[in-house]
Amino acid sequence: MASAINFTVAAATDIFDLSPDQSGRVRAEKDPAAIAAIPPGFKFVTPGKFTVAVSPGGPPLATYATDAKTVVGADPDYALAIADSLGLELELVPVAWPDWPLGLVSGKYDAVISNVGVTEQRKEKFDFSTYRQGLHGFFVKADSSIKEIKQPKDAAGLRITVGASTNQERILLKWSDENVKAGLKPIELVYHDDDAARLVALRSGRVDVIVQPHAQLVYIAARDKNIKRVGTLSAGWLERSDVAITTRKGSGLADALTLATNDLIRNGTYAKVLARWQLSEEALPESRTNPPGLPKS
């Protein structure tokens, strides 16, 4: 579920702070209940620190700052809020996306906070504490007459660009089938090999809508100022699909992290972190430990 795009960090500075100092970061207070929920005898990788792996795939979730070495974004900010809650210092470890599972199992870090989606297959090896919804975004040209896409009938007859064999394609094919059964026009899926080609197709009018992971498009919209959001789509449609703090299976840390997240939701810190990165649409009403995940394919 991690971003596969390496965006050029060169714009949108009027909305997103990509500086290394991060003076506007949201901090949290110690959470005595969450601290008490840490299992007796649990040993953090480094005493006094919460060591978290993150994959800098692109803003606004996680990217390198303008100094090309500091990792900033919504996931690093959330990791900091959790570390604060646990009374620990945050130690961020940048990793390549394919490397986090082995690194977590082998004990290189205490947790992964990097847009990891909850799946039934991953639950066999890891524990999860959910902290955001996994959303795709429907975006159109800024001057498009399309106002809203919330359900299959809203997309009837539209030309939508997707990548082949993606989750977005899977869902939209089902939407199109529903429309046809209801006597509406099918959705015309237009395939492009990469994200740049999809954006060019949208801006040139060859397609009406682009569907990609929501956070990616939020940043592009802020950067380019020529596309806008008209809806979101759960990555697990019909069910909600969440992303989660990921920990070693059976380590016992997940319940404490879930408790910390719910306290951050209640006291408003959680909302401030998401709002800072324009991701309020992805907020959860509550965190859950090991909820149902996407089924095995």
Results as ranks from 00 to 15, higher is better:
4 A>C: 04
21 D>M: 06
22 Q>N: 03
24 G>R: 07
26 V>D: 00
30 K>S: 04
33 A>V: 12
33 A>T: 12
37 A>G: 08
42 F>K: 07
43 K>I: 15
46 T>G: 03
47 P>V: 04
48 G>D: 03
54 V>C: 12
59 P>R: 07
64 Y>E: 06
64 Y>P: 07
67 D>I: 12
69 K>R: 15
70 T>K: 11
72 V>N: 04
73 G>H: 06
78 Y>P: 08
82 I>H: 05
82 I>F: 03
84 D>C: 02
85 S>Y: 03
86 L>S: 01
88 L>G: 02
91 E>I: 03
93 V>M: 13
94 P>I: 09
101 P>N: 13
107 G>W: 13
109 Y>L: 10
113 I>V: 08
113 I>R: 03
126 F>G: 07
126 F>K: 11
128 F>T: 01
129 S>V: 04
130 T>M: 08
130 T>N: 06
133 Q>N: 13
138 F>T: 05
141 K>M: 04
146 I>N: 09
146 I>G: 12
152 P>I: 05
152 P>D: 04
153 K>R: 15
153 K>Y: 10
162 V>D: 01
169 E>N: 06
172 L>V: 01
173 L>Y: 00
174 K>I: 06
182 A>E: 14
191 Y>D: 08
193 D>M: 14
195 D>M: 10
196 A>K: 15
200 V>I: 11
201 A>L: 09
201 A>G: 09
201 A>R: 00
204 S>H: 02
222 A>T: 07
225 K>G: 10
234 S>I: 10
240 R>M: 12
241 S>W: 05
245 I>A: 08
246 T>H: 01
246 T>G: 02
251 S>G: 14
252 G>W: 11
253 L>A: 11
253 L>E: 06
255 D>W: 00
259 L>F: 09
262 N>I: 13
262 N>F: 14
266 R>W: 00
268 G>K: 12
270 Y>F: 13
270 Y>C: 09
275 A>N: 13
275 A>D: 15
275 A>M: 11
277 W>E: 08
279 L>V: 10
279 L>A: 14
283 A>Y: 02
285 P>A: 13
287 S>L: 06
289 T>I: 13
295 P>K: 02
